[in-house]
Nucleic acid binder design. Structure first.
Lengths: 155, 155
DNA sequence: CTTAATTAGTTTCATATGTAACTATTTGTT
DNA sequence: AACAAATAGTTACATATGAAACTAATTAAG
């Protein structure tokens, strides 16, 4: 038997950042697989489609803000979606640097198919929780998010 | 012809998989930054050190099971840690394929430093929650984890 | 025993991702 | 007007990651 460590052991399994990461990755992986298999979309592309469907004419920068993606990730996802024929870009008349993004006809029909699937998937996931528990989870996550916000100093 | 029913808008911000992913990434990023800055460790390397410190002589496969890392990730993390001089490998006498892993003297002292930091970080994060809330969060996360387990079929 | 199948772990290769540098345009200053 | 600074978005490069192929050792089957 090894000596007792000089400090209290850290149990990874009980470590909140670890538990959160494993849970989130498990869920993300399932969903990524679904979107990829059904529509050839990455999670990033799906997020871009989701916000563009919700706010047609949105700019890449705004997409970044709404999806917590950085501008490079947005740029790449948009490029891929245009390649796939799901998205189109129009120059913004008031600002030559920006462009406005829209779902194409095809993109819209993919969107119309994928949204109910995504919602069903979320509901299947959440089905194990009661409505009260869902609200409580949201509340707790928001508290944590405040505590972990990137601008906040570490100690 | 009946109109196609309008697709209810999907609000990414209210979408649990998205919220979980953003929260987890925010937290992971903070922690990754800390470990990297202080000890030159990636999150994967830190996880390997954590379980090796907790169970000296552990094998790579067991590390994978305890950390939810795949064997390639474990192999790379271990290689890096040996390179850094934090970990050493001894052949397992009973099975020539395995090796047993141990923290080196240096690795142990890094471990002794990093564990209290990690715990402090976790406590700073959790400080916004009451003990009841922490228990409740754990309970809800476990329910979700059951619902999302990878072997479970999608629909 | 001898060979096939399994397991532990590493390496290879193709792709994903993050950071920094870059282009083009707009805004602010004088 | 002229030029510096800021902003939108893309490109390039270096590194991270995952899947599959591979090596070596062990176990199972005939």
């Amino acid at each position: 038997m090894p000596d007792t460590p000089p400090i209290p052991p850290l149990r990874l399994r009980e470590f909140l950042p670890y538990r959160l990461s494993v849970l989130s990755n498990t869920i993300s992986r399932r969903i990524a697989e679904l979107y990829d298999r059904e529509f050839g979309l990455s999670i990033w592309q799906w997020r871009v489609m989701a916000v563009t469907g919700d706010a047609p004419g949105i700019s890449a920068t705004e997409i970044g803000q709404r999806t917590a993606m950085d501008k490079v990730a947005v740029s790449r996802a948009v490029a891929g979606l245009i390649e796939l024929g799901y998205l189109e870009r129009k120059a913004a008349e008031e600002d030559g640097r920006r462009s406005k993004l829209y779902l194409t006809r095809t993109g819209q029909s993919v969107y119309d198919e994928i949204v109910p699937m995504a919602m069903a998937e979320e509901q299947a996931l959440e089905a194990v929780l009661t409505p009260d528990e869902r609200r409580e989870l949201t509340r707790l996550m928001e508290k944590l998010a405040g505590s972990a916000s990137p601008d906040r100093p570490l100690w």
